[in-house]
Design a protein around this nucleic acid. Structure first.
Length: 560
RNA sequence: AGGGGUAUCGCCAAGCGGUAAGGCAACGGGUUUUGAUCCCGUCAUGCGGAGGUUCGAAUCCUCCUACCCCUGCCA
């Protein structure tokens, strides 16, 4: 995409950027960055930020960096870095140059800290974390100056040196910016900018035992990288004055500007790293990539496409107002994509035996069916018809309800792409359970409407003797409450949907799907969109339900 | 009288002083060998509330209300 393709600004950030370009701010250049902390897996909320940052750079012919904001080694790990890199790539974005790390600027950041000390704008504070909290004041009362606030530059330099050399224990001292303890903005009440952590860092190893805080590292890293528009979420709004104060008081090579947008909230799920982590660690789901998780890797395993997620992000827009997006929008995005791109197939998830009594034993007939009803370029597939078939249990009722378009005793129904059959007899076991249907087929209905009668509707089916056994995992929303973390009394975990996963191990799919590759996607006609799970093997095919088809029959049923 | 934000249809969201886009959902109807897709139609005399300015206000002003964020040596 080039800048000539940008018709009009699609959100307020693009408006600002276009104004900047008109005014030749930054020479008309646009540089953004996606700055995750590698302390968890990326989720759908990050996807919004990724699409915004990378998409904006793309749209205005600029560049976007992938920068790991790795200033807190104790919470971070290489595992998270690897997963984030993979997820960003999978979403279809490429960063400019090499992957960046805030940790590779630690030397420069240290020099900036020295600069602040020499200017009398930072000091080493010996107050404990607890004492510091007391001195900070409250939302309505100003804070008090630390007794160490007026140390000399020399003393501060010496003390900071000791911090750096590991001569002080964790918590014994911290470097603070010297701003204003009476500021109504808490972030300006002498924020800590360097703290002691005798910890091994996943990138810088054991070189440092002091680490810059987010506030001190972020803006300066933006400046070092030449970021022009530093886009973050609303909760950092109050940090902007500090961001600007540091940029103004430091000899940085550029002047980046921070802009904030509302983070994404989706109903029937949670999007907080802490809560997602809890779901994984406490075993409510099977991992970060569990198909019920709103993580990128979870959505991927569920069968979502990168394009559908990008479209979803486009759909929801970018604003400064906090809202909760309906899950139906995400589902709409994946249905739209998969309807056009997924080949069709038939899968009987809960089989009911059907015997075609007038079809000879041991014989079969093959049918050529289009892989897609509207897209001939997708070719065709072969399905086998025979005496022993399987249909969906829910497609048969002994007595047809009103508006029933499926099979019922004595009635006829079309087998999708095949013949019309009629149910002649219902076989039950001792407990009254229906175990088999004896049917006849009408040989005259191959590609033709029946003569003298009408078929109820169309149902899917497989040839029992030719179908491939498989496991089908039916996924549904993870929570039963639209806003699972909105209840003050009840923990979000108590709202977990017990039916968020239903495993059907007795399913059968049409023969062409034998050996289907992991992550390949299909529409199982009348059932929904499914994707081959990554744990699927030649011996055991596993399909994950991505999303159901829109179901107007379910609405009719619910209404009556 | 702590500071910073946000309020437009059930949900998301355009709108930037000239008379309320679009998407999702919902609801009608048509096509259909997927109760899918597709197509057609309906869906805010109203923009959190009250005043004011103006020929004209969702857009400007005043006051009010509701909700969100901020008292980590987390990001």
């Amino acid at each position: 995409m080039t800048k000539t393709e940008s018709a009009k600004p699609t959100n307020f950030i693009h408006q600002i950027i276009e104004q900047d370009i008109r005014n030749n701010v930054n020479g008309g250049k646009v540089v953004t960055r996606f700055p995750p902390e590698p302390n968890g897996y990326l989720h759908i909320g990050h996807a919004k930020s990724i699409c915004l940052n990378f998409g904006t750079a793309q749209k205005y012919g600029g560049q976007c960096n992938l920068r790991f904001d790795d200033t807190n080694p104790e919470k971070e790990s290489q595992e998270y870095i690897d997963s984030i890199v993979e997820d960003v790539r999978w979403l279809g974005f490429e960063w400019a140059g090499d992957i960046c790390y805030t940790s590779s600027y630690f030397d420069q950041l240290y020099d900036y800290a020295l600069h602040l000390i020499r200017e009398g704008k930072a000091y080493v504070d010996d107050l404990s974390a607890h004492e510091m909290r007391e001195y900070r004041g409250t939302l309505t009362e100003p804070g008090r100056n630390s007794p160490y606030r007026d140390r000399s530059v020399e003393e501060n330099l010496a003390l900071f040196e000791k911090m750096k050399n590991g001569e002080l224990s964790e918590g014994a001292a911290a470097l603070r910016a010297r701003i204003d303890m009476a500021s109504p903005n808490m972030n300006m009440r002498d924020p800590v900018i360097y703290r002691i952590r005798h910890a091994h860092h996943h990138q810088s190893g054991d070189k440092w035992c002091i680490y810059p805080s987010y506030d001190f590292a972020h803006g300066q890293s933006d400046a070092i990288e030449g970021v022009t528009h530093s886009i973050c979420t609303l909760e950092f709004e109050d940090h902007r004055p500090l961001y600007e104060w540091l940029i103004e008081n430091l000899p940085v090579p550029a002047v980046p500007k921070q802009y904030e947008f509302a983070r994404l909230n989706l109903n029937y799920t949670v999007t907080s790293k802490r809560k997602l982590k809890a779901l994984v660690e406490e075993g409510f789901v099977q991992g970060w990539d569990d198909p019920r998780m709103p993580t990128i890797s979870g959505l991927r395993r569920r069968g979502y496409t990168p394009a559908s997620i990008r479209n979803f992000c486009e759909m929801i827009g970018v604003t400064r107002s906090n809202g909760i997006v309906d899950m139906a929008m995400l589902e709409s995005a994946i249905r739209e994509d998969l309807d056009a791109s997924a080949p069709r197939a038939m899968c009987v998830t809960r089989p009911l035996k059907v015997t075609i009594t007038n079809f000879p034993e041991g014989e079969e007939e093959w049918f050529d069916l289009p892989a897609h009803p509207k897209d001939e370029s997708m070719g065709s597939r072969r399905v086998s018809f025979g005496r022993n078939l399987l249909i969906e249990q829910e497609d048969f009722e002994e007595v047809a309800p009103r508006k029933w378009k499926r099979l019922a005793t004595g009635d006829a129904v079309r087998l999708r792409g095949c013949y019309v059959i009629r149910c002649e007899e219902v076989i039950k076991d001792a407990s009254g359970q229906i175990i088999e249907l004896k049917c006849t087929y009408d040989p005259a209905t191959k590609g033709a409407n029946p003569e003298g009668y009408k078929a109820n509707g169309v149902i899917h089916w497989v040839n029992s003797d030719r179908s491939v056994p498989c496991e089908v995992r039916l996924y549904d929303r993870l929570f039963t409450e639209a806003n699972p973390d909105g209840d003050k009394e009840q923990d979000f975990q108590s709202f977990i949907n017990p039916e968020s996963l239903v495993v059907l191990s007795d399913a059968r799919v049409e023969p062409g799907l034998e050996g289907a590759a992991a992550e390949s996607r299909f529409q199982f006609e009348r059932m929904g969109y499914f994707s081959v799970d990554k744990d699927s093997t030649a011996d055991k095919l596993i399909f994950n339900r991505t999303v159901t088809l829109r179901d107007s029959w379910a609405k009719i049923q619910a209404g009556s």
